[in-house]
Design a protein around this nucleic acid. Structure first.
Lengths: 350, 350
DNA sequence: CTGAAAGCGCTAACAA
DNA sequence: TTGTTAGCGCTTTCAG
């Protein structure tokens, strides 16, 4: 089983009666080989069960791959920042210096800055692009251009199913929503739930948490049909305003003790929760931002539903790189990640 | 930041005014270099911020590493089988053909077969050993011999803290126990818990789940001090006997609706649970065996506390290999894994 | 103690 | 269309 280790390109060449260069041409489908020789080589490869030594290949070829990462800019600790971390640890894993990354950040509230970043990518002649779904229409236009230019692209976290992406790494948002509702309600009698949402200035942006909310509502329909959900919207950049809105909301609905935030910013509730302690209250949030984890640690959030954001990104660059390096389609195109449940007692080492 | 990519051993040699071979000797502390030259080389390395290209290094050195895996033999689907899977996927990740694995299985009920396997390893002149803790005394003796022979070893899952292992990958069993008690009791009024244990023929075997049980009890002490735990023991190889014991146990304690199995075999309760359905009952188990996952899927077990067994093993061989290849101590010696909570609604893609 | 040189298995440019 | 050859960056043996 491990004796195939000895099989080199040289053995194949000898058996096929050709030069090493020719074998190489066949292996990498570089063309310029007669049908007949190709068959001989292929036969020899099969017979010897040859597969190229990636180490040697790496060393000899000075090929460089530049992967463009197209994601919103973020401050440290925000969602997109941990995604960026994941990208970087991904290239670290494929230790070969053959792959490098370039960030193309844009303002997630500004489609023009997005289009701008796309243009820069097209101008830079990168080998591939990893991205998320933010502005759907602009994304479709960009993907079209990439395909025309023969540049492959991959999705992290969210994807558009009908596009011709190379790989995808992410979790099912509908299921995440479903799970969140389970965690918020099981073992309890819950008749009212407060759903806190974020005021957004959409400008063509796809609603990023729609599917999560749908999953959440679906669970209720399936298991707590009598349960009612009341929503309110808070301004993400305005702690004062947020506090006030939450106070008004809870004053108007004093019977609500169960809250959910389907977006990644349950930490925005912190002030409110700290000021109005209530042992009967239960809060479920999403995503493994530092500040969210701290909420769980401090007992303000009971459950956090998440997948490892950095790992998702990490996997994406690893898988995508493999495709680029090998020049072939991935063994598995869609990599769905398991959803993690985080509580106060399994937070360590996450 | 990426321009250090150009720095080769040649640059260092030139700057230090020595031959490449000398630089190599210094880098790998192979000795035979005068203090003075060594300093020059070290200075040059620091100045250029040189670090060896692992790809080239790999290719040039024909070193081979054979890692011995010392774990109990297992049938497919059992705990040790998934650990073995993880080992194998680990070597697959370090694609370099420099590392290979050899399994040394023993009968987990038979210390003699264990000692036998140890002897075989010693005879085979392996480069390193990955193992778990089963027979503590015999293990200590073996570890001593390994140290004497200069063979490094790593632990997966469980470890003995006072031994001089190279790396460890696993999860904290005490915490796992603590978490399990939380999941079994929170949001509920629980005053009695049934703990199902396995009848074992110890013969010098360390009790593998002691710490888990301690963690479990500790949680109760901290959060449900009035809660009482009743134990019973079932025979692992005897479904009839198991059923009968469980029936007797529950007949004797009809008020118990909360059960825990701290070992990896909650699936042994399946028959009983199926025959005596009870929507009020709650069961918590451990470890991600296929058959346990099926119990969760079928609603027989409410929560499973686990870490990815194969991943643990996978990480162990990857980390251990890195140490072997680089010949140096690991950056991080203890790799603690986060504990996963598995429920019916986040089972997919695990 | 140190330098020189022959590869490791593969790629790519150049000849033929 | 195919063969030849000079490296990739490092290790290791053999002289000196």
């Amino acid at each position: 089983m491990r004796n195939d280790k000895a099989v080199t390109i040289f053995d194949v060449a000898r058996l096929a009666g050709v030069a090493r260069g020719t074998v190489d041409r066949v292996v990498y489908k570089r063309g310029g080989v007669s049908k007949k020789t190709e068959e001989k080589v292929l036969a020899a490869i099969k017979e010897l069960n040859y597969s190229a030594n990636p180490i040697a290949s790496q060393l000899a070829s000075k090929r460089q791959f530049l992967i463009a990462c197209l994601i919103p800019s973020a401050r440290p600790g925000e969602y997109w920042a941990s995604m960026q971390e994941g990208f970087e640890s991904g290239v670290a894993e494929i230790r070969s210096h053959a792959v490098s990354l370039k960030m193309y950040n844009f303002d997630s509230d500004n489609p023009d800055s997005y289009r701008d970043a796309c243009e820069r990518i097209l101008g830079d002649k990168v080998s591939g692009v990893i991205m998320n779904v933010v502005f759907e229409d602009a994304l479709r236009a960009f993907a079209g251009k990439l395909e025309k230019a023969g540049i492959p692209y991959a999705f992290v976290d969210r994807k558009l199913d009908d596009l011709d992406y190379t790989v995808y790494c992410g979790a099912d948002p509908f299921e995440a929503g479903y799970l969140g509702a389970y965690l918020l309600t099981h073992r309890m009698q819950v008749s009212r739930i407060g759903m806190i949402r974020i005021q957004r200035d959409p400008r063509g942006q796809a609603d990023p948490n729609k599917l999560r909310r749908e999953g959440f509502m679906r669970y209720l329909k399936d298991y707590c049909p009598e349960c009612k959900v009341f929503s309110t919207f808070i301004p993400p950049q305005d702690p004062e305003g947020t506090l006030q809105i939450l106070e008004e909301f809870t004053a108007a609905h004093p019977e609500i003790r169960h809250f959910v935030m389907a977006n990644s910013r349950v930490h925005l509730m912190r002030d409110f929760l700290v000021r109005h302690p209530d042992p009967e209250r239960s809060v479920v949030g999403y995503d493994d931002l530092e500040r969210n984890l701290a909420m769980v640690q401090d007992g303000l959030v009971e459950y956090l539903v998440t997948r490892r954001t950095p790992r998702q990104a990490h996997n994406a660059v690893v898988e995508f790189s493999k495709c680029l390096i090998s020049g072939s389609a991935p063994a598995k195109r869609n990599h769905y990640m398991h959803m993690d449940i985080l509580s106060r007692f399994n937070l360590k080492d996450y």
